[in-house]
Amino acid sequence: MNYNRLNTKKEYLKVISYLNKLEVVCNFENHSEFLRFLQIYMRSLTRLGICHAREYLDDYSNFEQASTQIAKLELIKKQLVNTKIHHQSLGIVAMQDDLTIIIAFLDKLLEIIQFNINLANLQSNNDRRAGLQVNRSHLESFDNLENC
C-alpha cells in the first residue's frame, strides 16, 4: 500500500474502498510502516483536492502517539462530515459517494489505532504469528488498481 502512487482520485478511492472491506486484526499505531502509510494517504487527501488535511498533518514529530493520530484523524473526519452535510443541504450529489468512502476509511484507520491487540503482542504470542503473506488474488487486485 505504501508503494502505490495514488495519481488520481479514482485510484485513491479504489484503494481505500478495498481497505475498508478488510478485517482489523491488530493495532499498528507505533509501527513505522503504518505511520508512513498514514502520511501518504492523508497527504493524498490534500494533493488530490479532496479536502484540506495538510493543516492537521504538517507536524509529524509526535504523530507516533496514538492520541495524536486519533485527534488529527477525528478533525479530518469532522471536516469531511461537515462538507458532506453542506453538500447535501445544497443538493450537490457529485461527491456524496466519495465522501462516504473516505469517511469510512477514516473510521477504519481509527479502528486500527484503537484496536486492543497491538502488533508487538500479536508477534510475541506463541499461539499466533503475524507475518507477511502474499495472496495471489490480492496481488491481482492491486495490479488491477494500477491499470485504472
Rank of each mutant, 00 (worst) to 15 (best):
G49S: 05
V134K: 09
S67P: 00
K9Y: 01
I117M: 11
H138I: 11
E11W: 01
L80H: 05
N82V: 01
L110I: 15
D59K: 11
Y18E: 10
S137D: 13
I101E: 12
I16S: 02
K78P: 00
L119F: 08
E74F: 01
N7V: 05
I113T: 03
Q39H: 05
E23R: 14
D97C: 03
L48F: 04
V15S: 03
I101R: 13
L90T: 04
T83G: 03
L13K: 04
N126A: 12
N144K: 14
D143T: 10
I40Q: 07
A130Y: 15
D107F: 04
N144S: 14
L122S: 10
R136H: 13
N126W: 12
S124M: 09
N144I: 06
L80W: 06
L109I: 01
L38S: 03
C51R: 03
I40T: 09
M1Q: 09
K14Q: 15
L110S: 08
E111V: 06
N121V: 02
E29T: 11
K108M: 05
S32R: 12
L45I: 02
F34Y: 10
A130K: 09
K9F: 00
S137C: 06
K72P: 01
H31T: 05
G131Y: 15
F115W: 10
K21V: 02
E11D: 11
M42P: 00
N2Q: 06
D58W: 14
S137E: 13
F63M: 11
G131V: 03
N126G: 12
M1G: 08
E146H: 09
N116W: 07
R129S: 13
C51Q: 04
S67I: 10
C148H: 13
Q88T: 10
M95I: 07
H87Y: 13
R54C: 07
N4Y: 07
E11T: 05
E55W: 05
N82S: 11
H52T: 11
I113Q: 04
S67L: 09
E33R: 12
K9N: 05
A94K: 13
D58Q: 15
E29M: 07
T100G: 05
G131P: 08
L109R: 01
K14P: 00
Y18D: 12
D58S: 14
N118K: 08
E74T: 09
L145K: 07
F28K: 05
T68Y: 10
K72E: 12
L73T: 04
V93P: 01
